[in-house]
């Protein structure tokens, strides 16, 4: 963020159009380069959240799964703030050792 962006934000003005252009480009290029369509990304995001939610309670409002791109390489970046580790996940660890996937968690997905 530049000083101008901050002032624009404080005054409730629209950000400079160059900044908007850059952000829009970065997003659209991440998709162009990876050939992932938004629908597929949405599905992947949902499934990632489901898996992670088996073990930890997530703050879904603060989380995000996005494509980011830098130097012509694209990365899938998941930012998933954790509220707490799930009791059930901890118990399964104690009972079954490291083989976490051995016990399905029917109550895990909310």
């Amino acid at each position: 963020m530049t000083l101008l962006d901050l002032i624009d934000k404080l005054l409730g003005r629209q950000q400079a159009s160059a900044t908007t252009a850059k952000h829009r480009l970065q997003l659209v290029l991440a998709h162009d380069r990876s050939d992932l369509n938004p629908e597929l990304l949405q599905r992947m995001r949902k499934e990632i959240l489901e898996v992670v939610s088996k073990y930890v309670e997530l703050d879904l409002d603060g989380g995000d799964v996005t494509l980011e791109t830098e130097d012509r390489s694209t990365a899938l970046v998941a930012n998933l703030p954790i509220r707490r580790v799930k009791e059930a996940a901890l118990q399964s660890l104690n009972l079954n050792g490291p083989a976490l996937e051995a016990k399905p968690q029917s109550d895990a997905i909310e």
């Binding site: 530049t2 160059a18 480009l25 290029l29």
Partner: peptide
């Protein structure tokens, strides 16, 4: 300069 056009480094960064 008025940030109404993509900057030089914006373009070179994006296209690498």
């Amino acid at each position: 300069a008025n940030q109404e056009m993509l900057g030089i480094s914006d373009v070179t960064d994006i296209l690498a």
